[in-house]
């Protein structure tokens, strides 16, 4: 009945002779929340970055709402036109581990920037929309401050507002809490949780296994250059079937209390 928002087939990335992952098939349905787990170096961030082509995928196909994006190329990585990339990235938002806010713009300026420059929305309207998005992440009162005045958690919430302002169909989170003080992790996860209740389609790379369990509708565990095990959080996290998944989870539970 429902068509996937995002479909990857035979998706792969290699840097020269180094294979990061290959033959990944994945259908993301509207409203899916997928947590991607894996040991470091398993390619989970690279997979996420290949989806909005910050990293150019090498092979396979990428479909957004049934439209194929990019072309295979016989030599090296896939090819994407500048126009395709800009269109794709407006539909697939991204939140980074290091926030990457624009330091020379105010908080509201950061959020309004994409609307103004990419969409051509008039400054006044873009500003209003920015404030609305900032309200959603609880930072409307910071609209006129500069990012350097914010805590890490606040910065990340601004970065989320910046992505939301473009009305993306899919949101990608690349370890959004890994650079944060433990005390600030909660406020960011709270915002992501709230987005989940709104039924947004999201892919999240994280080390917060507990959060992944509560947040995700589906877990992908990456290992050995591909999707090693996948399923519901209960399946994968409570009853992992395969040895590397079991080992990974055991490692994470080592210091639980």
């Amino acid at each position: 009945m429902n068509a996937p928002v995002l479909r990857l087939s035979g998706f792969g990335k290699h840097f020269g002779s180094l294979r990061v992952f290959s033959d990944i098939d994945l259908d993301v349905m509207p409203g899916d929340r997928i947590a991607i787990l894996g040991a470091s170096g398993s390619g989970k961030s690279t997979l996420l970055r290949c989806i909005n082509v910050l990293e150019t995928p090498s092979e396979g196909s990428l479909e957004l709402d049934g439209d194929v994006v990019g072309q295979p190329s016989r030599s090296g990585d896939m090819r994407f036109s500048e126009r395709e990339l800009c269109a794709l990235r407006q539909r697939v938002g991204m939140v980074f581990q290091q926030f990457n806010l624009f330091p020379h713009m105010t908080v509201a300026g950061n959020v309004a920037e994409g609307l103004k420059t990419v969409r051509g929305v008039p400054a006044q309207k873009a500003q209003e929309r920015a404030v609305t998005e900032l309200q959603r992440v609880g930072l409307a009162d910071k609209a006129d401050t500069f990012p350097s005045r914010l805590s890490g958690g606040q910065k990340q919430r601004v970065a989320i507002a910046r992505a939301l302002a473009m009305d993306p169909e899919i949101l990608l989170f690349d370890e959004p809490t890994s650079a944060l003080d433990p005390a600030l992790v909660g406020e960011v996860l709270g915002v992501i949780e709230q987005l989940a209740t709104e039924g947004r389609t999201m892919l999240l790379v994280t080390h917060e296994i507990g959060f992944a369990y509560h947040f995700a509708t589906r877990i992908l565990f990456l290992a050995e250059g591909g999707i090693y095990e996948s399923g519901t959080p209960d399946d994968v996290l409570k009853n992992p079937k395969r040895p590397l998944t079991q080992q990974f989870l055991a490692e994470h539970r080592r210091f639980q209390f």
Partner: peptide
């Protein structure tokens, strides 16, 4: 990261350069 953040909201190379990179 500045390039990536600008690219990730759909800016072209020239827009990134003009709005985000050059001013800094």
């Amino acid at each position: 990261g500045q390039w990536e953040a600008a690219r990730a909201i759909g800016m072209t190379y020239n827009q990134c350069m003009g709005r985000v990179i050059l001013p800094q």
